[in-house]
Design a binder for these strands. Sequence first.
DNA 1: TTTCCGATTGGCT
DNA 2: GCCAATCGGAAAC
Length: 195
Amino acid sequence: MKKNKIQLLDSAFFNHSTLKVAKNILDKYIITERNGKKCGGRIVEVEAYLGQKDKASHAACGITKRNKLMYGKSGRIYIYYIYGNYNMFNIVCEEEGKPGAILFRAIEPEIGIETMIRRRKKDDVFDLTSGPAKLVQALGINLKDNGKKIPCKDIYIYEDSNKRRMISSGPRVGISKSKNFNYRFFIKNNRFLSK
DNA sequence: TTTCCGATTGGCT
DNA sequence: GCCAATCGGAAAC
């Protein structure tokens, strides 16, 4: 019996330099399964956040209560609350003890679009997951997911066989420090990127 | 304990 | 394009 077995990404995939992982994770699929509803799509835009030299990173000033996951094991989910309204979804990279994480900024919605429309209260597919806080909402991710490892039973990422990698990079969005680092990576010409 | 400000979004000019 | 909303983390005092 041959089943097309899906290869889930695990900590080994994330246990490399954050910049390398950021480039490699583009074009993969991220899925959440919540209340029997499966949602997800292709990862089309991410940003890398590093350690001390990266002044835009939470890890710029050393270890704190909030950012300690960034220093921990790779493949763990790091979620933080910001602007009094939003949660940001990251996955920790680098070997244990060295800080680094990738921020998910946009996915191309494919699976469970009706559920994502309901969660977002918006029916424009280009407004479902085209921003870091938007995709968190659409996928039903919340602070309870902080610290979970990838893969876990309701959040996982896998390789898509149908690759179409054309990667561009540029400055990160919404930061005031270390603006000159081109740590934003995205699939060129994709229609579902953040604004 | 006080103050400052942020890895954003959505609404309004 | 501009800006308010909104609140917790982190640093200053």
